[in-house]
């Protein structure tokens, strides 16, 4: 159901509670304060049947309450808009929104991560903090999202979200070994909006 998933850059935080649950809870609280984000991304897809990886790049904007606009600029231009009201739509050349069938989950994940509403992600994934390095030390951290249900697991083995001060990369692993890596660079972020 899910072929590619991207998650926007988010500020990493310093947390008092180092337990996995406490880390995730603290991260979610921090993300919930994010009002707007802008940046660029580079996406690389590794598909086993293709000789070379597919690389694309573009920009994204996020605004709380309104959603995300994801613009792929190279090599093929496209615009995807994800909003709480309309779900996931592809905006065509004439600026008409075309709903994407079976994209409810993608919308939930996008908006869940950007808005810090992990409760919605918990409907689909087991969200775990990869132990090793902690945010308190200001070093690398990583979250792993594993599908709860077989139906989703048949399409997506896991999602890894990694970062330091900001989320720096997202990796999606499919059951057949295909994977998608997205690297972010945030150019502007803020807690207030409008």
């Amino acid at each position: 159901m899910l072929t590619i998933l991207v998650v926007g850059p988010v500020p990493a935080v310093v947390f008092g509670d180092e337990s996995p649950a406490g880390f995730i809870s603290g991260l979610a609280q921090r993300l919930a304060k994010t009002g707007q984000l802008e940046g660029t991304f580079e996406q690389t897809r590794y598909i086993s049947v293709l000789s070379i990886p597919l690389r694309s790049s573009g920009t994204f904007t996020y605004q709380r309450g309104e959603g995300i606009v994801w613009r792929t600029l190279e090599p093929v231009a496209s615009v995807v808009r994800i909003s709480p009201d309309q779900g996931v739509v592809v905006v065509d050349d004439r600026n008409n929104p075309q709903p994407v069938p079976a994209s409810e989950l993608v919308g939930v994940i996008f908006l869940g991560v950007f808005s810090g509403d992990f409760s919605r992600l918990n409907d689909y994934f087991r969200v775990e903090h990869e132990q090793g390095v902690t945010a308190r030390e200001g070093d690398h951290w990583e979250l792993r999202l594993t599908p709860l249900r077989k139906q989703l697991a048949e399409h997506l083995r896991s999602i890894a979200i990694a970062g330091t001060q900001l989320v720096e990369s997202i990796t999606l692993l499919e059951p057949n070994g295909d994977r998608t890596e997205i690297v972010f660079e945030t150019t502007e972020s803020g807690e207030k909006f409008h």
Partner: peptide, 17 residues
């Protein structure tokens, strides 16, 4: 190809391969 570069491509019954 556009779908492959897009972040979403809808429901698939069988893998791309």
């Amino acid at each position: 190809v556009t779908g492959l570069y897009s972040p979403v491509s809808g429901f698939r019954l069988y893998p791309f391969a």
